[in-house]
Design a binder for these strands. Structure first.
Lengths: 168, 168
DNA sequence: TACCATTTTCAATATTTTCTGAAACTTTAA
DNA sequence: TTAAAGTTTCAGAAAATATTGAAAATGGTA
């Protein structure tokens, strides 16, 4: 397969993949483009390569920076800004986990904590089922939380090595 | 907190949570409702409790069944259909993992396999970066795949126990 | 200061996704 | 059969999201 074609496919699939995970298609595509670009790119280059507007590039880049996935670079003597993505996929993954945990899991755990104590007869089957469901989700969430923290802190080799070794 | 209020909050937050993960808000809400309902519910009860249309309930229930998260029940002598969700949260989680893996990770791995071999000079920096990025994602995907398979097959206690023990 | 290159913002627009509701269909029973 | 009770479908409407593009803001230079 030719590089140009492969690039196209990768960027477009990565965008579609992102959509399924609640990530803006363009944001995923910009990230994909930066992941496969050896050098930093300018807004104009991104606009051109993905055929999207300046405003769109600007907003999505800003989000990607907020996710800690993209960095702004300036070349001394130039006014223009360049953008790069960290190419270490393990770091990319842990960064995404870190952010989603902070943005989604943490607030959810907080909510569950508030919903744990319900007024009324503990024997009532509605109350019982509600409380048990909340408790169950909270427990799973807590475990996930610890597992993800472990991943965030771990080195890829150490983590994957240790965990997958459990198989044997 | 009163049960009615807590239910409302849980359902609405679960819906919002789902949205962020690329899951239809209503589908997540129906699932939440069934998770906290001790008895199976009919389409009409779901319509009423969530204030949504019959068509909406029907389609999302169908999807939930497709995800293996909800079951159809019939009571002998009655024409009506009842729906329940498995209340075991670990099973719910593994079922979701299983489905997402099948629907998303597997196709992605297949695509990456196709993008691995690019025609042209292996020394060219564009080709090099592209190939390395693809390789990196593929490796991470493979590890995730094995880890998730492990989770799917494991008992909660065994899995969480073994993995989290690595800490110590 | 004025000027140019570049970035940022955001109202308007376009696109995608979800939801409704009524018609068509199915099943059961008299 | 026919009817009643329930389910499914899907075209069109509504809502949610993403995108554009041009004006405003910013930064650097002479």
């Amino acid at each position: 397969m030719k590089l140009t074609e492969a690039k196209q496919q990768f960027i477009s699939s990565w965008g579609a993949f992102g959509t399924q995970w609640g990530i803006n298609r363009t944001m995923a595509q910009i990230h994909a483009l930066l992941l496969i670009s050896p050098d930093a790119l300018t807004q104009d280059e991104i606009m051109e390569q993905l055929s999207i507007s300046r405003g769109n590039v600007n907003m999505n880049i800003r989000d990607l920076i907020g996710w800690g996935l993209v960095e702004r670079q300036t070349v001394s003597g130039e006014r223009k800004e360049y953008f790069t993505a960290d190419k270490d996929i393990w770091k990319v993954a842990t960064q995404i986990i870190k952010e989603r945990k902070k943005r989604e899991l943490d607030p959810m755990m907080k909510l569950l904590g508030q919903l744990e104590n319900i007024e009324g007869d503990k024997k009532d089957k509605d109350i019982k089922q509600f409380t048990e469901t909340i408790k169950g989700i909270k427990k799973l969430g807590g475990n996930a939380d610890r597992l993800l923290d472990l991943m965030i802190k771990a080195e890829e080799n150490w983590f994957m090595g240790s965990v997958l070794k459990i198989f044997k």
